[in-house]
């Protein structure tokens, strides 16, 4: 690529990079929204807190935990420590609560697997505890179908919104890449005069645009990933760089990985179409 990244090409490169950055950033945002929706849905439907009423004493908590472990739909059950309770109270807007100030809670956190809509999960939990000789009540029940569907809507909106935005950015990249074809118009004309077919002439310009798009997409994608990490660190207090590999799933990086590919394909397609048009103009004057 002769005189690469000079003048118009330089401006075009950064335009493509910004478009790739925007598409990748929106994609990462959509992934974050998707994961939050999934987490919310899980918490809403797959989580319960049980308070042990009788008998008294720590043996009852152990018996309840054992009984819950054998209950259908329960994937895990663990007594709630004072520290955990203080943390939950803080999250739910209870202000600063010292763990040592809390009384003996006699609470058990229960995580549940997916349940069919017609199953009375709370009733099943109480029944399972009763079979284990424990009297208990559900103080935080998994929510039923009522109010459900919001997470699904959020996930759908995030997915299609990101795809739609990416398509708009691809269109922008495609149109912008036509300026590169316009810059190469004299080359297309020369190639046409020398007997190059439309595919040969347009392909050469498309290859150049695709390579430009690939590098611009790479830069845009990396910048978006970097911005995403910064937002993550700022949005979730206490998050460290060491914790990121465990927090980020491979699929979360899909928008970053797709940015160079998408930019290359869109830029190549736009430049190919424009160069093909210029070739057609040069090939036939009549």
């Amino acid at each position: 690529m002769r005189n690469a990244l000079s003048g118009v090409e330089h401006a075009l490169f950064w335009l493509l990079a910004v478009a790739a950055f925007a598409a990748a950033a929106v994609g990462l945002g959509a992934r974050a929204a998707d994961r939050m929706a999934v987490a919310y849905e899980n918490q809403r439907t797959n989580y319960a807190i049980v308070r042990v009423i009788a008998p008294d004493g720590p043996e009852a908590i152990a018996a309840a935990t054992t009984a819950l472990g054998a209950a259908p739909l329960v994937t895990s059950a663990a007594p709630m420590t004072a520290g955990r309770a203080a943390e939950l109270l803080r999250q739910w807007g209870g202000g600063e609560v010292a763990a040592e100030d809390l009384p003996d809670l006699r609470l058990i956190e229960v995580e549940l697997g997916p349940a069919p809509a017609q199953v009375d999960v709370s009733g099943d939990i109480v029944a399972a505890l009763a079979q284990g000789g424990v009297t208990a009540e559900i103080i935080h029940a998994p929510e039923g179908a009522a109010g459900g569907g919001l997470a699904t809507q959020v996930r759908q909106f995030a997915l299609w919104g990101a795809i739609g935005f990416a398509l708009v950015m691809a269109l922008l990249v495609s149109l912008a890449a036509r300026t590169l074809a316009a810059r190469r118009r004299e080359m297309v004309t020369v190639m046409c005069d020398l007997g190059a077919t439309r595919g040969q002439a347009a392909g050469r310009v498309a290859d150049e645009a695709a390579i430009l798009g690939l590098y611009a997409g790479l830069v845009g994608g990396i910048l978006a990933a970097f911005a995403g990490i910064v937002v993550l660190l700022l949005a979730i207090p206490g998050t460290t760089l060491d914790a990121l590999p465990e927090m980020i799933l491979p699929i979360d990086m899909l928008p970053v990985a797709l940015a160079p590919v998408g930019a290359a394909v869109a830029a190549g397609a736009g430049a190919r179409a424009a160069a093909g048009y210029f070739h057609a103009q040069a090939a036939r004057l009549g």
């Binding site: 020369v190 077919t197 439309r198």
Partner: peptide, 25 residues
């Protein structure tokens, strides 16, 4: 067809009245 014409063009040398070049080359 287009391909046959392109092949013929490759066997023609053309000097235009105002030749078009790739100016930076």
């Amino acid at each position: 067809g287009a391909r046959a014409l392109a092949n013929v063009k490759k066997r023609i040398g053309y000097v235009a009245e105002t030749p078009v070049f790739i100016e930076q080359w």
